[in-house]
Structures are given as structure tokens and as C-alpha cells.
């Protein structure tokens, strides 16, 4: 048995309804109340998504998943295919399973893939990645009065993010892949 304080993104919980992947989690202390962990979990057999809140002292069963370093190969109609460089074994995750993370994948890059009983269930990207700005508007003079003004920029691969107005086309910026937000100039 494990404690709910060990809950984090990518772990798998087992309960009588089956195996659940933790997709999101957040510690919450409602106005001077006890401590809880609010989660969004996805059933690995049925794909059903539930929002469940646990008390932090509650016991849960966390099942062991394997973390493997893999190389991203290509994307096609079946989804995203990765290869284990040690065993040359290939696995494919569907577009739905990869979700928004897919936009950050670049051919040949290394990622962590969690597998359960040989099946890929979750993808972990480097938290910070560098991208080149392919398109953004030039800064407009006099538009700085109200503080951190941002503008939209398109990154290589077509990702759109908000960047500070001083960022120019052709510059490289660091993006937080968990939040999709601009971090700093590369």
C-alpha cells in the first residue's frame, strides 16, 4: 500500500475498477480544511476519465510501471512511434494518448516512455525545450505601459505561444512543455 501523498502525474493506481493512470493532480487545502489531492485519472482498459479527490492520508495501491528511454521515430495514421535504442523494440501511442505533448516531438529526440505490461501508457518530455521563432509581429513602440505585455508567436513545428513583445522573429526561446508557456530567451 502507498499513500496518496505519493501521487504524481504518470503513476498508475489500481482499484477494484481496474488500472488508472494519473493524468493530472493538485494538492488542495480547502479554506482551513484537511489536505486533499484532487486528481484526474484515466482507466487504462476503458479510457474512461474520472475526477477523484483523495484525502492525503488515504492508502492506495500504486502499481509499478517501467520507465524506458526511447527515441521518437515518426508520426503516421496509427500515431507516434518510439524505439528503445537498446533492444530496438518499437512501440506506438495513439494521437489521443499523446495529446498536446505531440506538438513538441521532433524526429530523433529522446523521451521517457512509461510502459505497463509492455504497453506504452505515458510520455515524459524534457521539461524545458528550445524552439526557434518562425513568425511574430514586430514590437509596437509605446505599448509597454501596462507591464508584461505579450504577443503571439509561432514556433518551428507550428506551435503557437505567448511571448514578451521584445522577442523577435528568428530568435530561439525556451518553452515549458508542461504548461506550454514561454520561459526565457535561449
Amino acid at each position: 500500500m502507498a499513500s496518496t501523498s505519493e501521487i504524481k502525474k504518470g503513476i498508475v493506481i489500481q482499484d477494484p475498477q481496474g488500472l488508472w493512470l494519473v493524468v493530472e493532480f493538485q494538492h488542495v487545502n480547502p479554506g482551513k480544511g484537511a489536505a486533499f489531492v484532487r486528481t484526474r485519472i484515466k482507466n487504462l482498459q476503458t479510457g474512461k476519465v474520472l475526477e477523484v479527490t483523495y484525502k492525503t492520508s488515504e492508502s492506495i495501491t500504486i502499481v509499478e510501471v517501467e520507465h524506458r528511454r526511447m527515441q521518437y521515430l515518426y508520426h503516421d495514421a496509427t500515431g507516434y512511434t518510439f524505439m528503445d535504442n537498446a533492444s530496438y523494440e518499437q512501440v506506438t501511442m495513439s494521437d489521443e494518448e499523446v495529446g498536446d505533448q505531440g506538438q513538441y516531438l521532433r524526429d530523433g529526440m529522446e523521451v521517457n516512455v512509461s510502459t505497463f505490461e509492455g504497453r506504452p501508457i505515458a510520455l515524459e518530455l524534457p521539461r524545458k525545450m528550445t524552439f526557434k521563432i518562425t513568425q511574430t509581429m514586430p514590437a509596437v513602440a509605446g505599448n509597454t505601459a501596462s507591464g508584461n505585455v505579450t504577443k503571439e508567436a509561432t514556433l518551428e513545428g507550428g506551435i503557437k505561444i505567448q511571448v514578451p513583445i521584445f522577442i523577435k522573429e528568428g530568435e530561439e526561446v525556451i518553452v515549458n512543455t508542461e504548461t506550454g508557456e514561454y520561459v526565457e530567451r535561449a
Binding site: E51, V52, T53, Y54, K55, E58
Partner: peptide
């Protein structure tokens, strides 16, 4: 509502399990 219930959960704890998942957000 698909939540867990522990014997030690107080009335408030049970309330918060629904409130935090379905109402507060």
C-alpha cells in the same frame, strides 16, 4: 459519485471529496 470512502473519513472529508472534484473547479 465515483469517489473512495474510508472508515476514518469524517462528514467534512466526505463532503470535500465531492465538492473539490465537482463544485470548486
Amino acid at each position: 459519485h465515483g469517489q473512495t470512502v474510508q472508515p476514518t473519513d469524517t462528514w467534512d472529508d466526505l463532503f470535500f471529496k465531492i465538492f473539490l472534484s465537482e463544485v470548486e473547479p
